[in-house]
Design a binder for these strands. Sequence first.
DNA 1: CGAGGCGTTTGACGCCGGTCAAGCTGGAAT
DNA 2: ATTCCAGCTTGACCGGCGTCAAACGCCTCG
Lengths: 237, 237
Amino acid sequence: MRLMPSLPSRCAECLVRDTSLCSAMRDDELHALSDIARRKTFPAGQVVTWSGDPNSLCANIVSGAVKVTASTPDGREQIVGLLYPGDFVGQPFAQDAPLTITAVGETDLCLFPRGPFERTLDEHRAMERKLLERTMESLTDAQNRILALGRKNAVERIASFLLEVSERMGSDEDDSASEIALPISRGEMADYLGLTIETVSRQLTRLRKDGVIALEKGDRSCTILSRERLAAIADPD
Amino acid sequence: MRLMPSLPSRCAECLVRDTSLCSAMRDDELHALSDIARRKTFPAGQVVTWSGDPNSLCANIVSGAVKVTASTPDGREQIVGLLYPGDFVGQPFAQDAPLTITAVGETDLCLFPRGPFERTLDEHRAMERKLLERTMESLTDAQNRILALGRKNAVERIASFLLEVSERMGSDEDDSASEIALPISRGEMADYLGLTIETVSRQLTRLRKDGVIALEKGDRSCTILSRERLAAIADPD
DNA sequence: CGAGGCGTTTGACGCCGGTCAAGCTGGAAT
DNA sequence: ATTCCAGCTTGACCGGCGTCAAACGCCTCG
């Protein structure tokens, strides 16, 4: 009989052990999170938390992606955030959860009940610090999206989006992939970029006809043929 | 000869002692901040920090207001945030300062050099916690603006803005004032709402003609005649 | 194989808001 | 007073993007 390793077994082969909030924890500290965590797989399109639900959940994204959506009372919808593996989901210390969280593609989450998660933050300074830094990064992302929505036209928004996804999807080795597996549908791209499906489709074919990207049809993949030209479109001079 | 009071004298009559980050500090702890702080008054329009400057400053807003702006390389400008008395300005732990901070109207700031400020965060848990909560609130604000910019038309954005200012400007006693002293010019409203000056002006006169608001001309004040109707315009059903 | 449904593409048209331009107002300088 | 100037308002026009509609490709299910 051998001793338990200090790293919780369920965390041992976690894909985001070193990229999520957990990267702020030593192996032996991770039990604090592991003990309150529940792993769950959400099929594509399943809602994790509805707007208006009591704010009871926080989570790490292990694989897949989630969209954070807000909507006007009359039903117009806007994706206010897209989160990827390693990202943190939730609002510790907040009362309400005004936003809807939905899985985009099959998604694995590592769920924490909010109360115990907050207590873990209390006890693990480094994790709270990391959460603060992550939250500030999210704010910066949001500010970039505000610039895009307020001042960029359709092509520019789409070009920016493709570059953004390319960077986030780039595997750890090569930083930015040229062939992107778009995580979301045309309709979701529209909801993310403040456009309509038709405009997204038209501008994508425009980029294709101009030889900037290639689209394999029926598939959601997109290849960047000239990153340089795409960047020039995203941030014109 | 009497003992020094535990509250630093310069903080004794500070207008935001109990609303800024400082509200997380006991009187006797405030010396840690007071010792590194420098009060400075910025005239209207003066830039506090340029985009691209080294990220060396954090601050509390004591009076006035600041705008946080981003811009595209070709010069289109967007206000990504408006901050009021009691709000915190800056990005501790971040490398660069990609945004420009500008005083809007005469503004008093309580400035902290970033390094020492970060050390103060290290030593004062409660303040770091408060900063985390504030940052999450800012993120929520930003998400609301993303919804507005992505999915609302001109009148709706302006109505939302007026209500927003009315709530933030409402003195402590009555929560939301009906007569608003608009903190910014038409041009800045345009930059904030992703519109042009002309559109802002037209939609404001439209609201005036419809009897929803009154505008005293020459002055930057605006009176909400029917908060109910304004709210119905901001979030149509 | 064919039927049906979903996501996407493409087209025709109209409107909201941007652009350009002119006039208006009030305050500061002279 | 007169001039000047910055900020605001108003008007005429136009183009980008939304709206409505139809067709296409791909998948699943009968």
